[in-house]
Design a protein around this nucleic acid. Sequence first.
DNA 1: GATGAATGAGTTTTCATTCAT
DNA 2: GATGAATGAAAACTCATTCAT
Lengths: 197, 197, 197, 197
Amino acid sequence: MVRNRQLLLQAATATFAELGTEASMGEIAHRAGLAKGTVFRHFASKDDLIAAIMLQMLDRLIGTAERLDEKEDAAAALADFMASGVEALVADRTFCAVIGQPSLENSGVRDAISRLCDVAETLTARAREQGAIRSEITGTDVVLLLAGIHQTAAPLLTAQPQAWRRYLELALDGLRVTNARTLPHPPHALHPTDAPN
Amino acid sequence: MVRNRQLLLQAATATFAELGTEASMGEIAHRAGLAKGTVFRHFASKDDLIAAIMLQMLDRLIGTAERLDEKEDAAAALADFMASGVEALVADRTFCAVIGQPSLENSGVRDAISRLCDVAETLTARAREQGAIRSEITGTDVVLLLAGIHQTAAPLLTAQPQAWRRYLELALDGLRVTNARTLPHPPHALHPTDAPN
Amino acid sequence: MVRNRQLLLQAATATFAELGTEASMGEIAHRAGLAKGTVFRHFASKDDLIAAIMLQMLDRLIGTAERLDEKEDAAAALADFMASGVEALVADRTFCAVIGQPSLENSGVRDAISRLCDVAETLTARAREQGAIRSEITGTDVVLLLAGIHQTAAPLLTAQPQAWRRYLELALDGLRVTNARTLPHPPHALHPTDAPN
Amino acid sequence: MVRNRQLLLQAATATFAELGTEASMGEIAHRAGLAKGTVFRHFASKDDLIAAIMLQMLDRLIGTAERLDEKEDAAAALADFMASGVEALVADRTFCAVIGQPSLENSGVRDAISRLCDVAETLTARAREQGAIRSEITGTDVVLLLAGIHQTAAPLLTAQPQAWRRYLELALDGLRVTNARTLPHPPHALHPTDAPN
DNA sequence: GATGAATGAGTTTTCATTCAT
DNA sequence: GATGAATGAAAACTCATTCAT
């Protein structure tokens, strides 16, 4: 049933957020009020479940980016995008843990990350053109920063759930600096095999 | 034997850096050229071993900070400290993974983090007073940023091991901005439960 | 539906032949183009399904024996019967695997095996009387030899699908010897618990 | 400890003989009076355990063959070898179940089977030369017959543990026939990739 | 002190079987 | 009658931890 799938995704998201990816499938089943076997009926393996959660979040974030791209003010759109992104990570540690592991060789997730970088680049390009941010910043930079900002605030998560706003603003201030030296390392794509440009 | 303890710490650091915290005690023992039982003679549990590694790294970092505090140029000292810190994280994923988990209820590590925040605050205060960075930035902010910058570059780690330099510079640029709005969330200590001083 | 039953028996026969008795009910349902639940509507349990397949094969073999019994030449009839029997086993490993397990306490199968031994005995008796085979050989011996001959050639099954013919002939040569010593162990019925007749 | 290894091999042999290869590692551990983990300390996987059992039996059988080869009377030596072989199978069904599964891609076992065929061929060759058996029979035929004879008697195993002697004699009588037609299918090696001859 | 064999709880995953639709 | 979602009892295998030698 489609409702059980939702139940499982919710339970898994919450469980992974709380215990990390090492949380057991049994725990997730229990929290969803279902039997172990049912988890495997919906997601063939633990990796599949993790991938599904990440895809869900990535798709949401891509949608947000596309909606924000219709805004006139590119700088505000970019800031809103980053706020949405960090907030999504705060609600679900899984994303962060897995985005750094290239071992998750899930093509669906890889593709979604590429798409996310693409829409981020669209937003970023407009902000660059409007002179709102440094000219050297790419969409991939912006996506990478999401996880970085989240991580910065993560140790405070329980005591200060909104602390990420402080570090997001700090990062935005860094992006907005226009009279600074060129950054010391060139930008790079996350999955450079995607397309030769 | 005190030499075995060193062997184990080295092997464990390398193993955790490579395989993450899920690496088994057996693997660590093997890499140290010792038997499993010996690991438990030196470290009562896996968590203890992890804590010892973190302590080692934190102590090194505290030492670095203290040495840098003797420098005249506070801004340069702070930048060097952050570079050392991020580099240490890059060399050892364990730190990052654990710092966000308040579940590591190890008082030794908590104390060391507090001390690190203290020396970082000393460095930061001088930079603030010299007008080199925003007046609202605290030592804790700086410590938190270490993990954040590392995480930002983490997905590129294999392909671009030096990418963290790009994001460190970006963060420093954010810190150096002086004409920006006040940050939206107040600063906070990492372990506010410590005795109030 | 009676047609679904046929579909299932065919699919199960093929599946067990290919994958052995460990093949899953789901796989069988899938190959039959039906749902798992339907398998259980037709066969109360996996053991029941296996028993049904064996019954089918045994019935076919009994029919063959009855038809061959009308032949004049008893020796040829017996040889043909054995060839049919071994060929049936070669086409379906299940039979062989299960015949040796007294754990399959299925009375239908036991009865069918008894009937098979009976018709085999009819054929064998005529061959004995015609002096074509040793006088001490029983129908049960002949039935047991079917599985034995199949097993002899089984390791070559993939590379040499017809190898059983070699060992069938060898066995027949053994049966035809008339000047040999009496066999060292007396003949026995397969299911001596059957009503004494 | 070496004694536990023996305990496990014994328990596993008995368990597999009784329940077939589907018997669980847990059951084996239990029968050996050891914990589950201990089984895996001695045998890395279930397949490894099965392979170890088969190797043990094959090595014993090879030894027997070599000893018998010193006998003057080649026919008697061959008969003794076959009796030993069938008896070994009767004591351990595992061998039979696995010899037919080329899926057990264990090179150690494959090599041992080859060696067994080689010594069997040595025995067989002498019997052939002494005119005691048909000239077309190979060592591989003899090895294959071991499992076949065992299988023939298998259904009687509980009621008549010695019934295999009846079918062994029958097979020997087949081998001894010298005035029979040539067998219909040529002989073949079990692992023809071993050496081109 | 060091060893490594033994332990057993815990993990992912499979699958026969049941049952509401 | 048919379906396939749900179940939960195994199964193979891992690993932190203990302890006799």
